[in-house]
Design a protein around this nucleic acid. Sequence first.
DNA 1: AACCCGACTCGAAGCGCTTCGACGATCCGC
DNA 2: GCGGATCGTCGAAGCGCTTCGAGTCGGGTT
Lengths: 372, 372
Amino acid sequence: MAESSRPTSRPTPQPSPAGLGKRADMVTIADVARHAGVAVSTVSYVLSGKRAISASTRARVLASVRSLGYHPNAGARALASKRANVIALVLPLRSGMHLPVLMQFATAVVTTARQFDHDVLLMTADEGPAGLRRIAASAMVDGIVLMDVEMHDARVPVLRDLERPSVLIGFPADPSGLTCVDLDFYRAGAACVEHLAGLGHRTVALLGAPAVVYDRDTGFAHRTRAGFTETAQRLGIAATAQSCEENFEAVVRELAGLLARRPDLSALVVHNEAAVGQVLAALPALGRRVPQDVSVVAICPDEVAERASPALTSVLIPAEEVGRQAVSLLMCKLAEKPVPQSTLLPPRLTVRASTATAPAKPRWVRAGSPAS
Amino acid sequence: MAESSRPTSRPTPQPSPAGLGKRADMVTIADVARHAGVAVSTVSYVLSGKRAISASTRARVLASVRSLGYHPNAGARALASKRANVIALVLPLRSGMHLPVLMQFATAVVTTARQFDHDVLLMTADEGPAGLRRIAASAMVDGIVLMDVEMHDARVPVLRDLERPSVLIGFPADPSGLTCVDLDFYRAGAACVEHLAGLGHRTVALLGAPAVVYDRDTGFAHRTRAGFTETAQRLGIAATAQSCEENFEAVVRELAGLLARRPDLSALVVHNEAAVGQVLAALPALGRRVPQDVSVVAICPDEVAERASPALTSVLIPAEEVGRQAVSLLMCKLAEKPVPQSTLLPPRLTVRASTATAPAKPRWVRAGSPAS
DNA sequence: AACCCGACTCGAAGCGCTTCGACGATCCGC
DNA sequence: GCGGATCGTCGAAGCGCTTCGAGTCGGGTT
């Protein structure tokens, strides 16, 4: 079969054999049809699989597609089918969120989208609601993945009214009518406390994101703190929560303050990726060894935890998994399949070198009092 | 003239006042034309400005556009005009490159592209040359910005043969026929040495990226090293260059080795964002104060330098500027304007707290020898 | 007064693709 | 051996937009 084949046909020998001619070499579906000796619609059906095509015809068409190096014109396809095969990814791309996680997440979204034969349009949050309207109304994208949703996000009502499906990473105050995915930060905070309680710690503190993040009403920060605080209370553990800026001086200051107020503090939960390194540097400087004197649990991506010294016991932020899930959910919605309104990924705590049994009695308390 | 409108006008009260009807509310150019009482082509010309339209007509059309909430259908527009108004941004999105810079860069690209009324399609490098062919051939994008180019990158020849313009961030071994932008890493390496030389340092070392980055033939790493080494030679300064992994132990090991081999080492150039923090932590641990005993210059983004303690004298990686430039160049190429083949951004060295005059005689040398 | 020239606007022809209805073939049961 | 499914294929009608050639209408020229 192929080329010079077919009853009468004899297609013109390809004039520009796929990738040579630098200009105007846009191969169209008509070229493929001619080359294969079939109708345009037949080629379309072979490619989309929406109608049965005989094996022999299919093979011939596919051969032509390959030999001509045909790629369907995205615009034409979108226009005719009302599907762009593109999803929008809206990232914050400004301060606050920590960047590496974002990238991990973006990677996962792109990779997963490609598996579903979709591309990804990157948008920044600063176009705001108008941006969402624009890309939705222009039919440029079929759906939207929105990251870093805030509790009272102006974009949320827009999304709800938009004619395109969307998936949010994070939860707004009112998630009704939306599809949301996120790590279960409440349980993450809880898991940290439980781990520490299991090691015998009775006084713990949470070192969180910079104050601005709490003020901005970012859901995950609040939920982590709630999980932390309430679990501590339930287990009868003394707990303090504390926001924390991301430079070394601030970290030292906060830690020193914390240790002054709670001399018996024996464990720290750090929910601030940018600060974990600083915390590990500051504690020795304050005369506390990790984990002998103070145990540290972090909520952060695995790489950060593993790269730290000592390696951190941590609840990982499953950026990749969240990205995958978000896209999968969106694809379901595009296929008009029902999806759960909220998806909370269970936290997984990995024990590494930064947590240990609570000291029977802290060195510095012992040292400060007459030898027992 | 049109419907019941025109001179006496009074357009039909908009049936679905922009954003209410959840379904099938796609407003088309025909709707706008009808609403404004003009021909479709007139609306098109108003919107594109490609033909003169009287002020009164223009105003009427624009009013209709606004009141109907019209957004042109991207697919149709792309199909008819052969311009998608989308550019592709190809990011590495895998290990090696440091993430925060990437994000900064991506932000700049998106923001700048929007200023030129373009959107950004995000791709990962792992689709390789085939991915480039796909999006180029499908007319999904008008041009391509490619990041993290390697010296012998398989995608480079593809790009050269593609019918779409492109701009590379970084330089391949053979940049002929391409448009490339980057920080002038050679001069950046040089600037660091010059700064240190000016402070009287006579023995310096470069702590670079992990070995794998050099092996991968990443241009910027090599060029920085060349600038460093050759400038040191020119100025008669003893210089060592050294790759460096990004975990604390490795950093300590490399530094200890360096100090053992060159006891008179008084300054360090760090070109490894992930390691700068570790270096600052490791030096005190090795008994060297920064900057009294050892000066440190980093090549890294400003935030990293500022957040470090002490704040680092640094050559900033102008991610934002590079992104802006890349998009601007691409837009020129799209407009068929000529552009320089290579754009090297001059390094800017900012002096902060981590560099100081070279110690007259290092403490530990003095201490090791009989009192002078 | 016939003419031409700009300034504006319109109609229609696609852009490359999907999709729907139709049309020959086969194939089945009776 | 004939009506009716079924299968495989085709032709044509758009999808919503841009763009080109072709008007129309005043107001200057000769």
